[in-house]
Amino acid sequence: MTATPPDTDALLSVRGLGISLHGLPVVRRLSFDVRAREVLAVVGESGAGKSLTARALLGTAPRGARVTGSVRLRRAPGSYDELVGAPAPVLAALRGRRTALVPQDALSALSPVHPVGDQLAAAVRSVARVSRTEARARAVAALDRVGIADAARKARAYPHEYSGGMRQRAVIAMATINEPDLLIADEPTTALDPDLQEQVLRVLGEQREAVGAALVLVTHDLEAVRHHADRMLVMYAGRQAEQGPARRVLTRPAAPYTAGLLASLPPVETGGHGGRRRLPTIPGAPPAFDRLPPGCAFAPRCPLADERCRREEPGPRAIGDGHEVSCHRWEDVPHPATELFLERSV
C-alpha cells in the first residue's frame, strides 16, 4: 500500500497519523487534508479516537500519548510546520495564533475569576504587541461580533454572569480573535439545548467565514454535519471508515458503518406511533483497543462481513469525487441501508 503524498495545497495535511495511549493503538494510519476555509466534520462514536485526533492537531496530545506520522500545517505557499515531534514551545507558539480550539465546556475553558473581556484582551496581547486599551477595544468588538448585546458592559462581567449560550459565544470570540487559519471545535455544542446548538453553530460558521479560517468540527451530531460541513471523515475504532464530500457521504455512504449510523437516526417523516416502529441499530459494540480483531475492526458488527474482512484489514481506497472508503465490500452496501440494520429482536 503506497501512502498518498502530503497535499501541498492543503492548509493541514495529516499522513499516517498514529496515536497510542499507554501502548494501546487508539488512532491508526489516519490520513486526511483540510483546505483553507474548508469545514471538515470528524464523526464517529464515543471512543473512536476523534478527540485524540483533534488534540494531536493542536499539539496538545495528553501525557502518555505517543504520536507518530505527520501533521503538517501550511505557513505560506511551499512551506509548512511539522507538528509531530515538534518541541513544546514551537507548538505553543502556533496555538491561538494559527490554530485555535473551540472547547466543548465553555465554563471550564474560561477563568471564573477574571472578567470575560479581560480574558479576550489577554488572548490578543499574547500574540500581538498592542496597548491594553487597544486589546480591550478588540475584545469588546469580538464579543459584539458574536452577538452579545451590550458588549462593552458584558466584557466587564464574569463567566458565571453569562448564560450557557453566551459563554459558548464568548469562547468562539476568543478562538477567532487572533484570526487563526485553523479552528478545531471538539463537540462545541453537546452541553447545550438543541435550539442553542443550532444558534452556536451558526455563530461559529459566521466567525469562521469572517476570519477566513478552516474548521475541523468533531461531532457525533449528523444533523450538524449535514448543515455545516463541506467534507466529513468517519472514524471507527481509531481508523478511517470513510471520508469525502459531506453531502455525498450522507446520501450514499460507502462504509457499512456509516450506513448503520445513518439508518439509526429517527426518521423525519413519521411520528406519533410511540416508538412502536423499531429503529435500525448496529448490533454489538465497538472493540476494546487491546482486543482489536485481526481484519476489519467493524467486521464483527457488520452484516456484510465475509472471510476476507475477518482476515485482512481494508486500506483506504479512492472511489471517485474525493470519496475514500476503507471497506472490502463497499460496492455491496445497499441504498438505503436501513434493512441491513433492522433489529431482529429487541
Binding site: L261, S264, P266, G274, G275, R276, L279, T281
Partner: peptide, 18 residues
Amino acid sequence: LDPSVRAGVLNLLAGLQE
C-alpha cells in the same frame, strides 16, 4: 448517547412498554 446506541435504547424502551 451516540445515534446507534440511542436507537437501541429507544427500541428497548418501546419493547418494555408493549
